[in-house]
């Protein structure tokens, strides 16, 4: 494999890492002022990874950018609105608008800690990861699933840098399987609920970006694996 190709692979992995990093931060907890500030100052959403490659990503980013441009999100009442949007959809205490756990979708009964949770837990364990609040929090929270993919992408990048191609391929295959077996199962229903239930364009946009990214990911990973194999 040429250095050039390796360079391309590296760049692509960095793009993916950035995407996962932003997304996991967006979903794992309530929006911090720092997070919003970062998105705002660096105009990150205007240059979000794969923004030109995927329509949903592009639409979502546009929505978020416009919102961040037109609304003073750091002003108290607007920030509270954004904060409540997350709380209401993903934390409670009213009935959750978009439960952020895979098992809530695979169980049909909106349940936590189901067989899906165990499968996800066991997948993380293969790479020695557990949720920081194990066993009190369910492993298949969207923020954790995205964190897992972030971690594996990071490991792939590290493997690539050390020229451990087989390891990199194996890590990518793992990511691919995880996306297919888990995220793709529930992400469209989950993001649909956010798109219908969010009050701020921020989370509507984030939902579209997440959906678009999970759609496009297998294609990117496929190309990465094929290139690494060649």
């Amino acid at each position: 494999m040429t250095d050039k190709k390796l360079e391309g692979i590296k760049l692509l992995l960095e793009e993916r890492m950035l995407a996962y990093d932003i997304l996991r931060l967006a979903y794992v907890e309530e929006p911090s002022r720092e997070f919003v500030k970062t998105l705002l100052n660096d105009k990150l959403m205007n240059s979000f990874p794969f923004i030109e490659e995927e329509e949903e990503i592009s639409a979502g980013c546009r929505e978020i950018s416009e919102y961040l441009t037109n609304t003073d999100v750091l002003e108290e009442s607007q920030y509270q609105k954004l904060h409540w949007d997350y709380t209401k959809m993903f934390i409670g205490p009213y009935e959750l608008i978009a439960p952020p756990w895979e098992s809530a979708y695979t169980s049909k009964e909106r349940l936590l800690f189901q067989e899906t949770t165990l499968q996800v837990r066991n997948t993380y364990l293969k790479y020695n990861f557990i949720p920081r609040h194990y066993p009190h929090e369910a492993d298949d929270h969207i923020g954790l699933e995205l964190d897992y993919l972030y971690q594996l992408t990071k490991q792939t990048l590290e493997a690539g840098e050390k020229n451990k191609i087989q390891r990199a391929i194996q890590l990518l295959e793992e990511q691919n399987n995880f996306i297919k077996e888990h995220l793709q199962i529930w992400i469209s229903e989950f993001t649909e609920k956010i798109i219908n239930g969010a009050e701020t364009p921020f989370y509507r946009g984030m939902a579209k970006v997440l959906k678009g990214f999970i759609i496009i990911e297998p294609l990117i990973i496929k190309e990465l694996i094929e290139t690494l194999k060649s």
């Binding site: 794992v28 907890e29 309530e30 993380y124 990861f129 949720p131 609040h133 954790l144 964190d147 897992y148």
Partner: peptide, 9 residues
């Protein structure tokens, strides 16, 4: 992370 959710370790 503000430490509430914490992600994976």
């Amino acid at each position: 992370l503000t430490g509430c959710s914490g992600g994976l370790q």
